[in-house]
């Protein structure tokens, strides 16, 4: 196969996987601390919207990213307030976030906001000259780089720091963690808000890096797919990343196959099914029973 095409497919795969892996990391921090987050979709959408508005109004794209991340954190705070403070069923709380995001973004959506450009790829000097790998890994826009780094940071934080140990303890056995003097409620709030920041970054990716403008419902299920990818990766950052890459790859492959004229042999819709089909097959055939954090979904009441 033509190396140019290979590089194109791979780098498209990486970019398509970016919001998914950020979303999955968002879910990870929440769920590892014991809070289910099916509101990733809503947090992403809301952040994508505020980020875009901030960029259109101020023209400062980095300020816009900050606004998007803060929006994600605010939505997460609301999710935490409902599910940790009021002990609302976490699935309901997440659904509320999703509906609210669709409502608010639609309500405030105005057609006549013009874009102020988007984040452009930065080629890393030297490294980007390596054949294939260089184009794929070292010639990307900032959030894509950041997402790559964050996967490893998340892995390190979760499994090699005191914070990570406490975070996992709170999600596995909050009572025991509490007896050891860990503030369960605070840990959960903190990690849900971290999750919100990551979902916000995913939203910023969509409007400020990938598309450059906002459309209603533009997250298009990516938040839910992130959730799938997180469970697929068995609640680990590296596993989730692998899942996100797989998803991005099948998506990129599908686009490529559509262009290659295969459409006359196989309907392009069938090729379009590939990512979803593959996720199911891999999940059912190779990954099997995933074990969530033991205390996920259960609100904590201090005795």
């Amino acid at each position: 196969m033509d190396p140019v095409i290979i590089a194109a497919v791979l780098s498209s795969a990486l970019r398509q996987s970016t919001p998914i892996s950020l979303g999955a990391l968002s879910g990870l921090f929440c769920e590892r601390s014991g809070v289910i987050n099916i509101g990733i979709e809503g947090m992403m959408l809301m952040a994508a919207f505020t980020g875009f508005v901030a960029s259109a109004v101020t023209g400062n794209i980095f300020l816009a990213i900050l606004v998007a991340v803060l929006t994600g954190m605010l939505m997460a705070l609301f999710h935490g307030w409902l599910s940790i403070q009021f002990k609302v069923d976490q699935i309901i709380s997440g659904t509320v976030i999703n509906i609210l995001a669709v409502g608010l973004t639609g309500y405030f959506y105005t057609r006549n906001l013009t874009t102020q450009g988007k984040l452009e790829p930065i080629a890393l000097p030297g490294l980007s000259q390596i054949p294939i790998i260089g184009r794929v890994l070292f010639d990307n826009p900032p959030i894509t780089y950041l997402a790559l780094v964050l996967v490893f940071v998340a892995h390190f934080v979760l499994f090699h720091t005191r914070w990570g140990l406490r975070l996992r303890a709170v999600g596995e056995h909050p009572r025991a963690a509490d007896t050891l003097g860990i503030n369960v409620i605070w840990m959960r709030y903190a990690n849900v808000v971290i999750g919100g920041a990551l979902a916000g970054l995913a939203g910023a990716f969509l409007t400020l890096e990938a598309v450059g403008s906002f459309e209603r419902g533009m997250t298009n299920g990516r938040g839910f797919i992130s959730l799938a990818v997180m469970i697929f990766g068995k609640w680990t950052p590296l596993g989730a990343w692998a899942g996100a890459l797989l998803f991005g790859f099948t998506n990129a492959l599908q686009t490529q196959l559509q262009f290659s004229g295969l459409g006359s042999v196989i309907p392009h819709q069938f090729v379009g099914m590939l990512p979803y089909l593959l996720t199911i097959i891999v999940l059912a055939g190779f990954v099997g029973r995933a074990r969530p954090p033991a205390a996920v979904g259960q609100p904590y009441t201090k005795e």
Partner: peptide, 10 residues
């Protein structure tokens, strides 16, 4: 197979 219904239904 234990595949989670939230993922498979999505």
């Amino acid at each position: 197979t234990g595949a989670h219904e939230v993922i498979t239904t999505i």
